[in-house]
Design a binder for these strands. Sequence first.
DNA 1: GCAATAAATAGTATTGATTCCTATTTAGAT
DNA 2: ATCTAAATAGGAATCAATACTATTTATTGC
Lengths: 124, 124
Amino acid sequence: MKRYSPQRETILKIILDDGTHLSVDDIYNQARSKMPKISLGTVYRNLKTLEEHAEITQVQGPQQVAYFEPNRGPHHHFICRGCNSIRDIKDPEIKVCTGCISKKTPLKIEEVITTLYGTCEACS
Amino acid sequence: MKRYSPQRETILKIILDDGTHLSVDDIYNQARSKMPKISLGTVYRNLKTLEEHAEITQVQGPQQVAYFEPNRGPHHHFICRGCNSIRDIKDPEIKVCTGCISKKTPLKIEEVITTLYGTCEACS
DNA sequence: GCAATAAATAGTATTGATTCCTATTTAGAT
DNA sequence: ATCTAAATAGGAATCAATACTATTTATTGC
Ligand SMILES: [Mn+2]
Ligand SMILES: [Mn+2]
Ligand SMILES: [Zn+2]
Ligand SMILES: [Zn+2]
């Protein structure tokens, strides 16, 4: 982190306190209630910086919209096609054998993202 | 398919003939070389229709860009972070135990999408 | 403390993929 | 041949994200 700023602290705190998956707009609105003059560009810039420093993680939600959550180790996501809600899946059944794949291709695999789509209880 | 149109046939043929993963712009440009007056809106509309009728599949590429390919059964994708190229991964090692998960959650899982990110040979 | 300076910000404009709108054309049915 | 719902071309609008820029602010060295 190159420099400290109250805006960055505010944004990080919002994400840590919430603990779930927040859209940029969620974060922007919450931040504005604390710092009315904060700009949307600042939110985007800091989200990027915080992600680069591994303090938060970006999750690609439905319709290409980004969501952010605190870094809490590798896990997967379930996205409800009814209400677009996102929730964590920690089930270790979802495990990809990266090593096995690596032996068979000349590709360097750096990350594997598995996302489950379906219908949540509320939308059933 | 509600109705036939030469535009739709042209678009489908481009995707079937190519066989790889084409961006909307790729498809639009190829289509224009055959039908100079075709509009971008028509390309988007038909891609959506063709996908709804399961003749093609949409792949979500990097940076919110959609790619399309012929329907050729379930498989996964590798996306190179260097050149943004997409390629198929058919390795059966990538297999998620949907049944196992289903037993543990009240969520209805309808689709599991696994995407691998990394660096291709050319970009290494 | 006090400049110097590099980083960060607010506000605004711009981009770029996708969708929407509407008058016109067209494929398929009777 | 006529009718009508579906599809089209062309353009405007949307919307998340980024870029730009003048101004503010945190940090470093005196
Ligand atoms: Mn999560
Ligand atoms: Mn594919
Ligand atoms: Zn739901
Ligand atoms: Zn590459």
